[in-house]
Design a protein around this nucleic acid. Structure first.
Lengths: 151, 151
DNA sequence: GAAGATTTTGCATAAATATGCAAAGAAATT
DNA sequence: AATTTCTTTGCATATTTATGCAAAATCTTC
């Protein structure tokens, strides 16, 4: 499994759960068939620039330092690129096919990115759906996403 | 030496230097006659909610987190900056001197901003007073306000 | 597709941080 | 001011994280 997919999964995990320590990530990633050790997680975390912050109940958890800013960094975009298989426009919706299990990560990336004119989105396991008012707006959005992914 | 003074010193140190580890704080604090161990620093850091972030050169350093900073648009912040002349901590209160007549504006800005741990505030013509439970909380708030205003 | 260069990883362990517990210190209460 | 209660601290150590180094995997170039 490629590195960037693993890192993508890490981003997903820390945004959807309260991860207190790296060993937890090791366990969770193993459940998703990333066979990996704590040492690698440590390196990933440094590379992604993740931080530990305090939760309500005074426990530490991993978090992204500044969601919006980092969403645009090349590193994140590369991960996004790898997770996406293809984009399709179906009338007023854009349908994004992703690598299995990464739809939620792609969805949250898109949230941070703020797709323009989006009415909202849903996601399953390997598919993200973004809704627009009409075909034209879906088209425009699809083009700009394509541009991000393919140049 | 009181705890709050020490924690205030910690805030000062991490904002003026790049502190990579707690042992560095121990050394620096000892130079300022705070006779203290790493264990205590660890607890202070947790209490102050400090985090470790990556610097340019991929080293970790301690920093203040401030969710507040992102919360407000630059426009409002600029107005706020211009209105404020200076901040002072007096025990458990933060005293804000403003341009004449703007205390109420600054006060309502702060209300929206939601100064953390604030017990409440009052204002006159050119002064806003924010009340806190104790010196530490006043200190933390003052630092984060300073950060908004001066960097 | 072999040979060499580069990147990524695991292992073992070093380095850094957090914490249980007992004791010292403050504060409150009588 | 003695007694009780609550807070803060150090010590020792457990827990967590980072990293040097060699091996494995991946990528280049011929």
């Amino acid at each position: 499994m490629p590195r960037s997919l693993r890192q993508s999964k890490i981003l997903e995990l820390i945004t959807t759960r309260e991860i207190e320590k790296q060993e937890e990530l090791v366990t969770l990633l193993r459940e998703s068939n990333f066979d990996i050790t704590q040492a690698t997680i440590s390196r990933d975390i440094k590379e992604l620039g993740l931080i530990k912050i305090l939760t309500e109940d005074k426990k530490y958890k991993y978090a992204c330092i500044d969601a919006t800013e980092q969403a645009f960094s090349n590193k994140y975009i590369n991960i996004f690129k790898e997770a996406v298989i293809n984009l399709k426009i179906i009338n007023n919706i854009v349908l994004i096919k992703t690598i299995n299990g990464l739809a939620s990560a792609v969805n949250s990336f898109l949230d941070k990115l703020g797709v323009e004119n989006s009415l909202g989105s849903t996601f399953g396991n390997d598919t993200v759906t973004i809704y627009f008012e009409n075909d034209v707006k879906a088209n425009i959005a699809c083009h700009s996403l394509n541009k991000i992914i393919y140049g």
